[in-house]
Design a binder for these strands. Structure first.
Length: 429
RNA sequence: CGGGAUGUGGUGUAACGGUAGCACGCGUGCUUUGGGAGCAUGUAGUCCGAGUUCGAAUCUCGGCAUCCCGACCA
């Protein structure tokens, strides 16, 4: 990919209304643009990262037998009335009327629609279990959108719903989904923590939030300072303790074993949430199957969400420096950025195009900065965009038969002979 | 929803009630070319609507938008 033909409108300064680091860097690096409060356009660079995260999620979901579907973003009021949520969801549910004055909402989640789908087509225990998932926009008319795409009104989400014959099967599947989530966030290069959580508006009996650890996170996590494994969000902890927890409180689990471990408080960004829903929705919507004795039961359900656009922001929040983003390899928009110092110099051009071609053939994503900008501008943009590896091609090196390789995360510059550049880079990617 | 603040080119900002200016960006030309170049020349703005005034970016009222604190939030 040649930068001169791409669309990466980088900014020297961040707009004043970009509050946190990830919002500023996503604006500056030309990944997103703000359209209105809580509404963002993703530009090509932002899309590449979003799609990388999406692909990692898709692979793992398929890996646990989930099937991809596509549900409408606009959903009829009638389905939401069946579960009573049309009334309880409040102003966050964005409601609209069509030309016939029928009422609809923009989907903030899809339990109603998916349960309606499955109850019509799945009738027998023989067809269970089944898990369906989708990627799509979700709308929540937040009171106060903030932190860029982190708390947007419209955002990109993966939501999955599983249907089971009984509680045991649902629990087993919950474990599988929980494991898959761990793999997903690990692959995305994130430092994260699963914590016990209260279920909120989605409801159900049991849930975990996946928190990316970050100082700037909006959520508070309570955990055991001795690492016994206890971790919960603040609301959940308050339920367990029967009151607000304080820093001098002791870990309840350790206390049972006669140990005294103080609680620790950290901050995180919620990127995923898994729920055991039980029969909350299937009962309300009379979604049932017949068992082997011909008896009718409501489905036992689970649901599993990941905020894809939020994962992108969280990754930045966890990895940046004064010059810009430092992408984890797996989700980087480009794995390598080629910076020819003077692209129009014949030898430099020849080397640049050759390296670009060869890397591309090997399946490495490459951005070639073929603009006639000065070196400083190119280096600044390269740092801002944050590709894990930068290869500089300049006349100094060419005289010695070498190019320069520098990792975005480090300081070291290595001189590599041009013949060896391919194997050198492939090893590092 | 309660409290507070702010709206000036694409971005960041300046202007006592009296000529809307600066920097960056963007366009063009020339010179440059290893960490956000120089010169020349262009481009583009007072959130919207009323009112006060000889005259409003500036004062008043209304609307809209954005941001901050709180409550809310998968």
């Amino acid at each position: 990919m040649k930068l001169s033909q791409y669309y990466i409108p980088t900014l020297r300064e961040a707009p004043r209304d970009a509050e946190n680091v990830s919002a500023q860097l996503m604006m500056r690096s030309g990944m997103v643009r703000k359209v209105a409060s809580g509404l963002y356009s993703f530009l090509p660079l932002g899309m590449r990262v979003l799609k990388n995260v999406e692909e990692i999620i898709r692979e793992e979901m398929n890996g646990i037998g989930a099937l991809e579907v596509w549900l409408p973003h606009i959903q009829p009021k009638e389905l939401w009335e069946e579960t009573g949520r049309w009334g309880v969801y409040g102003k966050e549910l964005l409601r609209i009327k069509d030309r016939k004055n029928s009422e609809f909402c923009f989907a903030p989640t899809a339990e109603e629609v998916i349960t309606d789908l499955v109850r019509k087509d799945v009738k027998s225990y023989r067809q269970l279990p089944i898990t369906l998932y989708q990627f799509g926009a979700k709308f929540r008319d937040e009171i106060r959108p903030r932190f860029g795409v982190m708390r947007a009104r419209e955002f990109y989400m993966k939501d999955a719903y599983s249907f089971h014959a009984d509680e045991t099967d649902a629990s087993n599947y919950y474990e599988k989904a929980f494991e898959a989530y761990g793999k997903i966030f690990k692959k995305c290069g994130l430092k994260f923590w699963p914590v016990q959580a209260e279920s909120g508006a989605i409801g159900g009996s049991f849930s975990h939030e996946f928190m990316v650890l970050a100082e700037t996170g909006e959520d508070e996590i309570v955990s055991c300072s001795n690492g016994c494994g206890y971790a919960a969000n603040r609301e959940r902890a308050a339920v367990e303790y029967g009151r607000e927890v304080k820093s001098e409180d002791l870990c309840l689990r350790c206390k049972e074993k006669g140990k005294e471990s103080p609680l620790r408080f950290s901050r995180g960004i919620e990127v995923g949430h898994t729920f055991k829903l039980g029969a909350k929705y299937s009962q309300a919507m009379q979604a049932t199957y017949l068992d082997d004795a011909g008896k009718s039961h409501p489905f036992v359900m689970g649901c599993y969400g990941i905020g894809v656009s939020r994962v992108v922001a969280a990754a930045i929040e966890q990895s940046y420096d004064a010059n810009g983003i430092i992408w984890p390899r797996e989700i980087a928009p480009f794995q390598v950025i080629l910076v020819p110092i003077n692209f129009e110099e014949p030898k430099t051009k020849e080397w640049s195009l050759e390296i670009e071609r060869e890397l591309t053939q090997r399946g490495v994503s490459v951005l070639l900065d073929d603009r006639s900008e000065r070196a400083g501008v190119k280096f600044k943009d390269a740092d801002l965009i944050g590709a894990p590896i930068r290869v500089t091609i300049g006349e100094k090196g060419i005289q010695n038969g070498t190019v320069e390789v520098k990792e975005r995360a480090g300081e070291t510059v290595i001189h590599v002979r041009k013949e060896e550049i391919l194997t050198h880079l492939i090893e590092r990617i």
